[in-house]
Amino acid sequence: MNERTIGRRRFDFDRQVAVMAVVNRTPDSFYDRGATFALDRAVDAALAAAERGADWVDIGGVPFGQGPHVSVAEEIDRIVPVVEAITQASDVVVSVDTNRALVAQAAIKAGAAVINDTSGLGDPDMADVISRSDAHLVITHSVGPPRVEKPAAYFADVVQDVRSFLEERVERAEAAGIPRSRIIIDPGHDLDKNTRHSLELTRHLDELSVLGLPILAAVSNKDFIGESIDREQGHRLAGSIAAMAVCIERGARIVRMHDVEAAVDAVRMVEAILGMRQPARLDHNTHPTRNV
């Protein structure tokens, strides 16, 4: 679990937390409302995130929530050129947020090192596609297919239900030939869950560590933050940083964040507090006392 080569970068999750930036090549993303839909803007945003310290860039072509149908061909057309451009210009890890095996296959061929599957292997062909590559797989908890209206969220015990789901999907991935050394898990904050569910998952995130796999926390600007502190979209940075810090303290080692600069600073501080890294410098009160 602790040391992994992902793409062209090496991570030691005993000593560091990876910051994953978000770039949505969609006209209807919940956060940026299409600001990076144009190809050049998506590529520029990804490379700028890497310059600001992001270890990882997650590219999305279709939002998880309800919206108009996007064909497989259109999703591939949105994703592949961005992946190709980023991997040619930078060694930053590139993941692709998709739940379709054909899109994953095209993305891996273009250079993606990770498939971030928010459906948790909902596509029966996804595990086979990943197993025939060197790519990592993020298995995320959600309920049913994305992009459709669903009933109100209900769990008898959300932590236990999420853990059981992830255990079963990890077993399915391993049976398909994906080694555990290439699997990451994500409890899926807000995905088919209400605010109380997401808060409960955050409080008990450490209970997922029994699976022995790196945990990804995708909390940035989610509705559970907005509802918890009564802030509309665009005013949730402080809440996002707080939720991220708690997730790291409880075991998350990859955090998916929109505001890269603030997230990187906060992550470095949390790492220092937890003893995962040394301070960047030691100047304060380090000079010997002088006798006057």
Rank of each mutant, 00 (worst) to 15 (best):
Met1Glu: 13
Met1Pro: 13
Arg15Cys: 13
Arg15Pro: 11
Met20Phe: 14
Pro27Cys: 05
Phe30Arg: 06
Gly34Val: 02
Gly34Cys: 03
Phe37Arg: 02
Arg41Asn: 03
Ala45Cys: 08
Ala45Trp: 00
Ala46Pro: 00
Ala48Met: 05
Gly53Ile: 00
Asp55Ala: 11
Trp56Gly: 06
Ile59Pro: 07
Gly60Pro: 08
Gly60Gln: 00
Gly60Tyr: 00
Phe64Ala: 15
Gly65Phe: 10
Pro68Ala: 14
Val70Asn: 07
Val70Trp: 05
Val72Gln: 05
Arg78Cys: 08
Gln88Trp: 04
Asp97Lys: 04
Thr98His: 07
Ala101Gln: 01
Ala101Tyr: 02
Val103Pro: 08
Val103Gly: 03
Ala104Ser: 10
Ile108Asp: 05
Lys109Pro: 09
Ile115Ser: 01
Asn116Gly: 10
Ser119His: 05
Gly120His: 04
Val129Cys: 08
Ser133Ile: 09
Val138Pro: 01
Val138Glu: 02
Thr140Trp: 06
His141Gln: 07
Val143Gly: 10
Ala153Asp: 02
Tyr154Ile: 03
Phe155Cys: 09
Asp157Tyr: 08
Asp157Gln: 14
Gln160Val: 14
Asp161Glu: 15
Val162Arg: 02
Val162Ser: 05
Arg163Gln: 12
Ala173Ser: 07
Arg180Ile: 12
Arg180Trp: 11
Arg180Gln: 13
Asp192Phe: 03
Ser198Gly: 07
Thr202Arg: 11
Thr202Cys: 11
Thr202Leu: 15
Asp206Asn: 09
Leu216Gln: 02
Leu216Ile: 06
Ala218Ser: 12
Ser220Met: 02
Lys222Arg: 13
Asp223Thr: 12
Phe224Lys: 07
Ile225Ala: 02
Ile225Leu: 06
Gly226Val: 04
Gln233Ile: 13
Gly234Pro: 00
His235Gly: 10
Arg236Lys: 13
Gly239Ile: 00
Ile241His: 01
Ala242Ser: 12
Ala245Glu: 14
Glu249Ile: 14
Glu249Ala: 13
Arg253Tyr: 06
Met257Arg: 00
Asp259Lys: 09
Glu261His: 08
Ala262Met: 06
Asp265Gln: 15
Asp265Leu: 08
Asp265Trp: 02
Arg268Ser: 05
Glu271Cys: 11
Ile273Phe: 14
Ile273Leu: 13
Met276Glu: 10
His287Tyr: 10
Thr289Asn: 10
Thr289Met: 11
Asn291Met: 11
Asn291Phe: 14
